[in-house]
């Protein structure tokens, strides 16, 4: 049994099962249009959050710049799809890729100088970048009136269906899993654990930080592109620094360095946010923000390591080598510890 669940294809079976279940729920009307918007929002959120998990959770670079790359991707893809491709389907696919590429390129260019900073300094510098990008988006109409500036961008062809978003998410999960389990992924984790030691064993730390930052930024851009093709209004205020905290919350609540955690936490996050709106009686709706804040504080105090810690679903985790004898290893380790 253990063997089957840890096979990668088993993950695809699970994904297919979830897809079929959700699809059935839509067809039979169990899930209405409102909740389908909520679910899609959660799926898009997950794609971006996986990018941040790669940067912060796996490589240990405290980035608060995710909203900027999300916004850059959304505007790049949205504008291309609207102005250049006029709603053609392959044009839509191309603009998604262009959005991701643009975000990846900009995060690479920003990352090269800025990744020299450490922890909180890196955080505040990337947060500054979000404020800069937000202002730029507010003023897009100065050079491109069609982008709408502070009024927001409308009229992007709405071509991202649930199916597209779901497939993109599954591909993203596979992509991130394979990176994390590769040599490069091990190098990233080494950079997180101890940069000096990683350097000493010959890992090019700057290169791996830049790679993680670029891929993470590109995933945020991809998610932004999906957002632009699923929700009819793009507004600069969607990409301000408060949005950055949403991604950070999801990654930390799920558990740093856990793909499973990010998947669980981002869906839970969207459901708590929207679910409270649906569950609370009319008189208490004002309390939504307060309850959300309390849930956040209590969860963090009870599970400081995140919901999942660094536990992975078996098919997302590395396979254990067949010959190892875990019992003895643990015993030795226990002795060495004391």
């Amino acid at each position: 049994m253990r063997k089957i669940v840890s096979e990668p294809w088993f993950g695809l079976v699970i994904a297919a099962a979830i897809y079929v279940a959700l699809k059935l729920a839509y067809v039979t009307g169990v899930i209405g249009p409102y909740w389908s918007l909520v679910i899609d929002q959660g799926l898009i959120m997950t794609v971006a959050a996986l990018g941040l998990n790669l940067i912060y959770g796996f490589t240990g670079q405290f980035s608060l710049g995710h909203a900027a790359f999300y916004g850059i991707g959304a505007y790049t893809a949205g504008l291309l799809s609207k102005l250049v491709f006029h709603g053609s389907y392959w044009g839509f696919v191309l603009s998604m890729l262009a959005g991701a590429a643009m975000s990846g390129l900009i995060s690479f260019l920003l990352g090269l100088p800025i990744l020299r900073l450490k922890s909180d300094y890196l955080g505040i510098a990337t947060l500054g970048f979000v404020v800069i990008v937000k202002t730029a988006l507010d003023n897009t109409d100065l050079f491109l009136p069609a982008a709408g500036g502070a009024r927001g961008l409308t009229g992007v062809p709405q071509l991202a269906s649930f199916d597209v978003i779901f497939v993109v998410l599954v591909l993203t999960v596979i992509f991130v899993r394979n990176i994390v389990l590769s040599t490069h992924g091990r190098a990233m984790v080494a950079v997180r654990e101890d940069e000096l030691a990683a350097d000493a064993v010959g890992i090019n730390t700057t290169l791996y930080k830049a790679i993680a930052f670029t891929i993470g930024g590109a995933l945020a851009g991809l998610a932004g592109g999906l957002y632009s093709a699923r929700y009819p209004l793009l507004h600069p205020s969607l990409f301000d620094f408060l949005r950055t905290f949403d991604f950070l919350l999801v990654v930390v609540l799920g558990g740093l360095g856990s793909i499973t955690g990010t998947l669980v936490a981002s869906m839970a996050w969207v459901f708590i946010l929207e679910g409270l709106r649906a569950i609370l009686p009319q008189t208490l709706v004002d309390w939504r923000g307060v309850l959300y804040a309390i849930i956040l504080i209590v969860l963090m105090i009870l599970r400081p390591q995140g919901l999942m810690g660094n536990i992975e679903l078996p098919f997302l985790a590395a396979k254990r080598p067949a010959q190892s004898r875990p019992a003895e290893v643990t015993k030795d380790a226990a002795i060495a510890d004391h």
Binding site: F245, L248, L249, V252, L253, G289, V290, Y292, A293, I294, L296, I297, M300, I301
Partner: peptide, 10 residues
């Protein structure tokens, strides 16, 4: 840091 964000929202 996350609880700080929570307190801020609260």
């Amino acid at each position: 840091l996350i609880t700080a964000i929570g307190v801020s929202l609260f």
